[in-house]
Design a binder for these strands. Structure first.
Length: 448
RNA sequence: UCCCGGAUAGCUCAGUCGGUAGAGCAGCUGGCUGUUAACCAGCGGGCCGGGGGUUCGAGUCCCUCUCCGGGAGCCA
């Protein structure tokens, strides 16, 4: 069947075309029928006038239920008031597959109901727009690294040992031995960087922690660049250039989608280098000031936030309230660097200027999204690394191959990991990351 | 694992002081020649999450279980 996509209607004004899609909605007024069809590329209104049409076809228009798959033939007209700016003067219509009692009506629904119908929810215009933005984010990620000479070296998903030794992993059986679903490709990335210089990996990542917040998924997609001979400062340069590129690319390529989801794009337009860089110790001072400031606020929400700021105490990792306070106080992402070494992973290199702190960075997005990037400079000295592995109570045997990277021509190197869903969540303003992945996997939720 | 909130029609919700169950949308029937989540009139639709208790009487109060949502910790 020769068919025309709704996105291409602008090239067919005055011509008769056939659109193949699904009934999005229909409206009527006396002897007029408006049949709204979506085909994945857009929504188009086909208009039927009773006196000008075969009565059987006109009646067929009335019989259509939401999401019935149909083909519609007619002449394309430019019509400003129609969704998309074009309409079809309906000449013929055929049902491909009926749809009875489609659960998602064009009205409000609750999250639990929509999640149970995720396989159908994806047809809704808001979800459709978010997935198209996700696609462009992923394209931008690949283009950014590809254009800068990075080589894509994907890391394994099945691994024999826990990478960082701390997180809860999904365990599976591998020919009689225990195996785990990867929680990061980083260790393998380091090996790849010693072979290719500049590398990145991009794939699914798994975390079995019983986390239940709008920022968490048990299965999410992470992109991780790793570069040999790169230090922390250059790592931060890379991270901010990367974020700027991705955000600006979405702004330039996804204007229609951003409009559908009613995203305030002025906030994204601000996302230009340089981003503020804040030492952990300075972040502590900043947070103490914010805590005092918010405590005196008239806004009850801010007073509540104030109570939770610096809850973790000095020397600890930042809490959720701390990230929120930092994020909301800036109009672009903030890079917090040099956290206390004690709270960071074993592979982080200590700051030679003060070994109590690690050469690491977290990028905190504005608008309450929280951390979108975590990274840093890796420890390249074999004996120091072995000491850290022992200190963290990890098995030396498990890291034999990893230590080889320090044994054979070790070099300073750095990298970071960015969660695609959090990035998409920030760019789209989605309330929960579950809307930014087609089929979210969450605590006790693996269906559909 | 912990803290908070919730469960009433297919969906989203209301339900006063404890007194026999309501609306909008969806569905069905009809009306309207330009609709924009169209509108107007009419009709059908209920194990009030499960169990127990208090009471003459429980959707409503108490206990408990189940499920769902939000958050904390942890993280991207």
């Amino acid at each position: 069947m020769k068919r025309t996509y709704i996105a291409d209607l602008k090239d067919h004004v005055g011509q008769e075309v056939t659109i193949a899609g699904w009934l999005y909605n229909k409206r009527s007024s006396g002897k007029v029928r408006f049949v709204l069809v979506r085909d994945g590329t857009g929504i188009c209104q086909a208009t039927a006038f009773k006196p000008e049409l075969d009565p059987a076809i006109f009646d067929l228009c009335d019989s259509l239920d939401q999401e019935t798959s149909i083909t519609v033939t007619g002449v394309v007209k430019a019509f400003e008031k129609a969704p998309g700016g074009f309409e079809l003067g309906l000449k013929n219509l055929a049902i491909v597959g009926v749809s009875k009692d489609y659960p998602i009506t064009p009205k409000e629904h609750g999250v639990a109901f929509l999640m149970e119908n995720r396989h159908l929810w994806l047809r809704s215009s808001r979800q459709h727009a978010i997935m198209r933005i996700r696609h462009q984010v992923i394209r931008a990620v690949r283009d950014f690294f590809d254009d800068q000479g990075f080589t894509l070296i994907d890391s394994p998903i099945l691994t024999a040992n826990a990478c960082e030794g701390t997180s809860t992993l999904f365990e599976t059986e591998y020919f009689g031995e225990k195996a785990y679903l990867s929680q990061s490709g980083q260790l393998y990335n380091e090996a790849a960087a010693m072979a290719f210089g500049k590398v990145y990996c991009f794939g699914p990542t798994f975390r079995a922690e019983k986390s239940k917040t709008r920022r968490h998924l048990t299965e999410f997609w992470m992109v991780e660049p790793e570069v040999a001979f790169m230090d922390l400062e250059e790592d931060m340069d890379l991270a901010e250039a990367f974020i700027e590129f991705v955000v600006q690319r979405v702004l330039s390529r996804c204007a229609p989608e951003l409009k559908v989801i009613e995203r305030d794009v002025t906030k994204l337009a601000n996302v230009k280098r340089p981003f503020p860089r804040l030492r952990y110790s300075d972040a502590m001072t900043f947070l103490a000031e914010k805590k005092a400031e918010f405590a005196k606020s008239d806004d009850e929400e801010l007073r509540k936030l104030s109570a939770d700021i610096l809850k973790n105490g000095p020397g600890d990792d930042l809490g959720a309230a701390d990230e929120t306070a930092i994020g909301m106080s800036h109009d672009r992402p903030v890079m917090v660097h040099r956290y206390p070494a004690a709270v960071k992973a074993f592979y982080m290199k200590n700051d030679p200027a003060d070994p109590n702190f690690a050469l690491c960075v977290d990028v905190i997005a504005p608008e309450g999204v929280g951390e979108i990037i975590g990274g840093g400079q890796r420890e390249e000295d074999l004996s120091v690394l072995e000491g850290k592995i022992a200190q963290h109570g990890l098995s030396g045997d498990a890291f034999k191959w990893y230590n080889d990277l320090r044994r054979y021509g070790s070099v300073p190197h750095s990298g970071f990991g960015m969660g695609i869903e959090r990035m998409v969540g920030w760019v789209t303003g989605a309330h929960h990351v579950r809307e930014t992945i087609p089929f979210p996997r969450m605590m006790e939720k693996i269906w559909p």
